[in-house]
Design a protein around this nucleic acid. Structure first.
Lengths: 194, 194, 194, 194
DNA sequence: AATGAATGAGAATTCATTCAT
DNA sequence: GATGAATGAATTCTCATTCAT
């Protein structure tokens, strides 16, 4: 009765994990609550005790994924040694992003897979979280520019979009992308350092 | 009966257009043949005269989209004036890609929206077309490197993936992306020219 | 292809009959499309070819029932011999009403059973049909008053409501009511003739 | 623990009230225990402490409604002044009935709405209560006939059915019926007095 | 070349009910 | 007395697909 993690909380976690996997595989429209329930070791009807609606589950999955990824990315950036070279700094941030995407039991990938086919209401409620994630990159790049470790001859917002877009696209195009994470990190480092 | 464009061919085109729109909006799993048929001014059953199965329609839509985009991109590249500056060359290629994505009645966007939730068989049969599209960029970048107008200190394949990934991501993230096409082109030009 | 009664029309009739039976038994909220489909020798999904929605089926069933009952009642009234006594006139009208209610394969009973638990939209769209039915009685009573065969010391609209309410209530209270139809007719005749 | 009205009894009352409202709105088949629980400020599961089953709750609601209405009607009849005119006597009884129906927080209306779609067992167990209610009218009418204040040229049982049916039908047909209660009472008085 | 009518499987959601806490 | 968490069956509805016409 006074579990640190109540039964409901544990079940909710299982549902969210199953949910992330399902949405990452099939997208918003193709996902099935039946399969999600089965993967979470529940009967379909039981989902509704935890989430009143499919869209509520989607929303929770999106928040779960994007917030977790933001935390990961920010941690990776914070962990950069003070004496790292400019290239090294960018490499570590890029790897942080890619690891969040790929080593996350689909939590972050689900977001990328769903985001562009969401119905209007969900998209709206999600966009703020997305903005918060993007701001981590924006701050990182801006600080780099201020410190002279990121080139300043480009619009930093556009640059942020390109970086985020390119990295996220690895979630789909290439499931073995993590193997080439080093190459990708290296490439961005080369492009971004003045 | 002796139309240059037979009735069937015209209907097929209407179906493919409706199809592209639907898949771009809802993704592979969320698309509905009923809605596609309605948009093409047909009853569902009639689709089956033109495509034996949903997946066959998907495959045709993918081919239609990616081949059309490749043609567009290649035309844009071929149209680059011989005396264009290095920056100008890249700008024009990027704009060619973005215009193919956005000014295409969803044909190309449908591909981007579907590609990462395709079932295995479709993914396989599609990947060759995707490779052919990517090769256009690869050739363009390689020739640029050979001519000294694209920097050579990066792995050209990785670079190609980043460029394509970043550009395609504009199909989702930002519906008003075309307005910023110039900015994006400018940014890539800055990053890529040595 | 050129059936007088097309296949669809015949199926629709079967559905409406099954529908009337189901709604008469269980009311609006308790009726099941599964059972209706089974009774009409169809699979559930097939219902949707003929009626886009449960409420559309309900609406059609209501119209079917009330219009049929109105026709029956009007025919019974029109069939009253010109030389009938005042009592006889009323007896025949009452019997017409009761027969419409009970000898109708549930068509009219379904209306009575559903009408007070209908959701707002259906109720609205139904009320005009109900008014048209009630007008048949109103006209009959008014003409009776004019001819001196129906007492004139009561508000004719209220009287109409009492008669219709009392007769319709026999649809529920007493399934063997038809046996007492003569008694009921006799009683109304006694009450209404001056 | 020693309340005159124990906690359980008060909760039971809240449930019965919520129940009456729900059944009046949706009928037997369309009512939802979840909604009833919510309206009574409980969770669904808690209902089962007070009623072992949905049908037990239905039965209790029926008894509650019909007995309450009978009590109301009897009180209204008993309150008729000894020197009231025949018309006045009938008017007051009719008004007693209508007030029980409409001014009862749905208690009596729930009965009328449910009664004709009840499953067989419930109908059986309910019919005796219904008979007891009907007997109040029967006695009133018989005594009226004996006293010469109600016409004797009609079958009194049939008359009772007509009166009860007509009055109960005002629960559905006309939600603003109470406004016309006086007219209805007046009309019955006119019809029934010799 | 297209439609009409149907099907079986599966979608999301709600139901009454249970039972340990 | 009441809740939290779950279940299995049922709900309405949509799906891709078939096939005779």
């Amino acid at each position: 009765m006074d579990d640190l993690e109540s039964k409901a909380a544990r079940t909710r976690r299982r549902i969210l994990d199953a949910s992330a996997h399902e949405f990452a595989l099939y997208g918003y429209g193709g996902a099935s609550l039946r399969r999600i329930a089965a993967a979470a070791d529940l009967k379909v009807g039981s989902l509704y005790f935890h989430f009143k609606t499919k869209d509520e589950l989607v929303a929770a999955t999106l928040v779960d994924g994007v917030d977790w990824a933001r935390t990961q990315l920010r941690a990776a950036i914070k962990a950069i040694p003070a004496d790292a070279t400019p290239q090294e700094r960018i490499r570590l941030a890029v790897r942080g992003h890619l690891e969040a995407l790929h080593a996350s039991h689909d939590r972050a990938a689900a977001v990328v897979r769903m985001v562009d086919t969401l119905p209007a209401e969900l998209r709206a409620s999600h966009s703020e979280h997305e903005r918060r994630f993007a701001r981590v990159w924006l701050d990182f790049l801006r600080e780099g520019q201020a410190a002279g470790t990121v080139r300043t001859d480009v619009n930093v917002r556009v640059l942020r979009d390109l970086v985020v877009g390119a990295l996220n696209s690895t979630a789909s195009v290439n499931p073995s992308a993590l193997r080439s994470a080093d190459l990708i990190a290296e490439t961005w480092a080369t492009l971004l350092v003045p």
